[in-house]
Write a protein that binds this DNA or RNA. Structure first.
Length: 153
DNA sequence: GCCAACGTTGGC
DNA sequence: GCCAACGTTGGC
């Protein structure tokens, strides 16, 4: 069992969008970074939990928890010319990009702001804090518990 | 809108 | 294989 953090822009797909999906469940598509892809393809397992993180918005931060309900499988949006995630270099039959399916487990009543997490020395080693532009990242169990016990209610 | 971080591309 | 140019992410 591993913990994760998944970033998404709320203008594109925020936790409110997930909340409105049938069964509050959705594919996590559009990841176009190889390191993030490798996590999706190889490491994220059924039943793993992930923080849902809102980026590029007025209040960046953690907004809830999702559970992985399907492990890595090819992201069809890479092959769809009408998709904003279309990848012209993806050859048919050669899968480059993967997604998982997530289901909403908890929507926090308040955002846990990035601003607060950055001030917490216990969290300084999180990729969220010290590594830019990684949209899928592991969260240690220690950090997971720390964030839940100190910042969510 | 700016710009730092950093990943990708392509010429050599 | 190096590295400069370029593109994207994402906080501010």
């Amino acid at each position: 069992m591993t913990f994760w953090l998944l970033k998404s822009e709320p203008d594109t797909f925020g936790i409110e969008h997930l909340e409105r999906q049938p069964d509050q469940r959705s594919g996590w598509d559009g990841v176009r970074n190889y390191q993030a892809r490798n996590f999706l393809r190889d490491q994220i397992k059924l039943g793993d939990l992930a923080f849902f993180y809102h980026s590029s918005c007025p209040q960046p931060g953690i907004v809830g928890i999702v559970e992985i309900v399907r492990e890595g499988y090819p992201d069809p949006s890479a092959f769809d010319p009408t998709s904003k995630y279309f990848d012209a270099k993806s050859e048919p039959g050669k899968v480059r990009w993967y997604q998982v399916d997530v289901q909403l487990r908890e929507k926090f009543t308040d955002v846990i702001p990035l601003q607060a997490l950055k001030l917490d020395s216990q969290l300084a080693s999180m990729p969220l804090i010290n590594r830019s532009r990684l949209s899928v990242q592991p969260v240690s169990e220690e950090h997971w518990r720390h964030i839940l016990s100190h910042y969510s209610h």
